[in-house]
Design a protein around this nucleic acid. Structure first.
Lengths: 311, 311
DNA sequence: CATCATAAGTGAGTTTTCCTCACGCAGTTA
DNA sequence: TAACTGCGTGAGGAAAACTCACTTATGATG
C-alpha cells in the first residue's frame, strides 16, 4: 500500500518524458488522437504510443478507449488541466522572450492589511497616473515568487530576507497611537477607562512601543484582535486605542475617522519591494516601485501635520 | 522529409525542442555544463550540443563562453528565469497528480472593492472557522484562470460567462442607497442639497435604480468617483448619497458609519463562483464556496433589520 | 615556466527514441 | 453488407540524442 509506482523497476519519481506530456495535453484538448496527430504533424500511431507509454509510467489510465473514440478519464482530465496550464506558460515564456508579447499586468504580493487600507484603494490612481495595470495578491508571510507567479512583493524587513532577492527600500515604518475622535475626548480625562487594542499578527507591537515611548499612557485593559485590520476597525468604532502604521491609517486620519494621539515614530523597520529578477529589465517594476515609494513618503511628510495638531 | 523542410521558412514561432529547453534551465541554474550534465545523467557534450542548438533556433547567445567557464548573458538569464518557473510548475503538476504534494493555498480572484470591503477583512474568520488558507487576487474584469493561476473567481453575472467554466451561484446582488448618519438628517429636510455619488466602473447603476425605484428622491447634483471604493468612502465622509451593494457595505452599516436610506433591492444580478475545473475533485473549493455563500446570505438576511429601521 | 587539472567545443560513430507504415479491429454510417 | 472512421500494434527505419575521444583554452601548482 505504499506507492504502486515503485513496482516499476527502481524509478522513484522522475518526471515523465516531456514529449509524452506534450502529446498528452494536445490529445486531451481534442479528446482525439487523430486530431492531436494532425496538430503535431505526426501520425496517430505516434500519439497512441506516447500516451500508452505515459500511462504505463504513471501507472494508470488517462483515456478510456471505447468504440472508435477515446475519452479522458477523470484523472486524465485532472492531469490535462494542470499540464495545459504549464505548457501554455511555456509557450508564453518563449514568445515573451522572443519579444512577441504584450505587457502583462504586474502582480504584486502584499500583506493583507496594507493591501486593504492602502494599495487597493489607490489602484485607480496608479492606473490613471502611470497607466500601469496592477493586480494585487493579498498574502502575508513567506513569499514564493515561483509558485504564486508574483512579479513584486511588498514586505517589511522584520524577518530574514532571502539574499537571492533584489531589494529596494520604499519607506520606513512609522507607528503611532490612534483612536476615534470621541475616544480622544474621553482620554483627556479618564485615560485608564480605555483599553489598548492588540493584534495577534503583531503581538510585540505595544511592548516595543512602550520601550521607546515610556511616557505614553497606560490603558485600562487589553483587547486582542485576530487581524490588524480588525484592530483598526475597532479603533474607528471607539473600542479603544490602537497602535497602527501610518501607511495603513493615512486615509482614515485624513478623513477624520481616526485621530492620532501624539506623534508617529519610526519603529526601525522598513518597507521593501522585493523582486525575483535582479536585473532592471522591466520598466514596469521601476514605475510601480517609484509610485509606491512616493506615496509612502507622502504619508510620512503629512505626518508632521498630524503630530503638531495633537501635541 | 517534405513536411519538415517545407515549413522551415514558414516556421515563425514554434517552440524549441523541449529537451533543449530543459537542458538549458539546468545549465543556467548551475552556470556550468558539466554540473548540468551530471544532474541529467549525460555527458557534458550532450549539454553543449543541446544548448548550441537552442541558441541557433533562438538566434542569439544564451551563454558567454569565456575562460574555462560559461556565463549567462542577460538575455539568457531572462529566459532562464521564465523557464525555470515553468519547469518547476511542471514538476509540481506531475507530483501533484501523483499525490505527493501538500495542499496549496487557494487563490481566489475577486473584483477590488468586494475584495476590500468584504473578502480580505474576513480572511481571518475563514481561516479560523474552516482552517482554509486563502490568498486573494484583486482583479476585476475578464478572468484568465490559466495566466493568473487562479483556483476560483468571484464575479457578478453582469457579463457573458465563458460556458466552459464551472459556475456556482453564491447570492443575489442587493443595491441600496447609503449615506453618513449626519447626511441622513439633512436629507429629511433638504433632499435637494445633497449630491448623488456615481462610480465610473458602474455608470448605469443610478439609472437602473431609478427605473425600479421611481419614488426615490432626486438629488442636487452628481459627483463621479473613479472607483467604487472611493464612492463608499465619499458617502462615509458625508459627501452625498451612494448606491452600494449590501455585500460591500454590510460592515459599515453594522458599525454605523453608514446608514441605509430605505430598503435594499435585488438588481437582478447574482454573485457567482467560477472555477476552471468542472469536477469537484477539490474539497477546498467546496469549503470556500460554502463559507462565502453563507456569509453573503447572512448579509441579505440582516438586511431586513436595516430596512425596517428606516422605513 | 613547465605541468597538471578543469571546463567546454567538436566530429565521428553509436545508441535510443520516436516515428511511419501497413495492417487489424471494432463500431458507425450508408 | 460494404465502406468508413478512429485507434492499437509490430516491424522497420529515420532522426534525435548521446558517447567517445580528442582539442583548445585557461587557471592553478610546484
Amino acid at each position: 500500500m505504499m506507492s504502486r509506482n515503485s513496482d516499476l523497476k527502481s524509478r522513484p519519481a522522475r518526471t515523465p518524458p516531456l514529449g509524452a506530456l506534450k502529446a498528452f495535453t494536445v490529445a486531451a484538448r481534442h479528446e482525439s488522437f487523430a486530431l492531436a496527430a494532425e496538430e503535431l504533424h505526426v501520425t496517430h500511431g505516434a500519439i497512441s504510443k506516447q500516451i500508452g507509454n505515459l500511462e504505463e509510467i504513471l501507472g494508470e489510465a488517462l483515456f478510456v478507449r471505447r468504440n472508435r473514440r477515446v475519452f479522458l478519464t477523470d484523472r486524465g482530465r485532472e492531469l490535462a488541466m494542470k499540464l495545459s496550464a504549464v505548457f501554455q506558460d511555456l509557450d508564453n515564456a518563449v514568445a515573451d522572450f522572443r519579444g512577441n508579447q504584450e505587457p502583462q499586468p504586474l502582480i504584486v504580493s502584499c500583506e493583507p492589511t496594507l493591501c486593504l487600507k492602502f494599495l487597493i484603494p489607490n489602484l485607480a490612481d496608479l492606473k490613471s497616473s502611470t497607466g500601469l495595470e496592477v493586480k494585487v495578491l493579498a498574502a502575508g508571510g513567506r513569499i514564493d515568487f515561483r509558485r504564486d507567479h508574483i512579479d513584486l512583493a511588498v514586505r517589511r524587513n522584520d524577518f530574514p530576507i532571502d539574499p537571492q532577492l533584489h531589494v529596494k527600500e520604499l519607506a520606513p515604518e512609522f507607528m503611532g497611537m490612534v483612536c476615534a475622535p470621541s475616544v480622544a475626548k474621553i482620554l483627556e480625562q479618564h485615560a485608564d477607562s480605555v483599553p489598548a487594542l492588540h493584534t495577534r499578527s503583531r503581538p510585540e507591537a505595544w511592548q516595543n512601543w512602550r520601550l521607546s515611548q515610556p511616557k505614553s499612557p497606560r490603558f485600562a485593559s487589553n483587547v486582542i484582535y485576530e487581524h490588524f485590520y480588525m484592530a483598526i476597525e475597532g479603533a474607528m468604532a471607539g473600542q479603544g486605542v490602537g497602535l497602527a502604521s501610518i501607511h495603513m491609517v493615512a486615509s482614515d486620519l485624513a478623513s477624520g475617522r481616526l485621530q492620532a494621539l501624539g506623534p508617529f515614530k519610526p519603529d526601525g523597520t522598513q518597507y521593501l519591494a522585493l523582486s525575483a529578477s535582479p536585473y532592471k529589465t522591466d520598466t514596469r517594476h521601476l514605475i510601480f516601485i517609484d509610485w509606491l515609494a512616493r506615496r509612502m513618503q507622502a504619508h510620512i511628510e503629512k505626518l508632521q501635520d498630524v503630530c503638531h495638531s495633537t501635541e
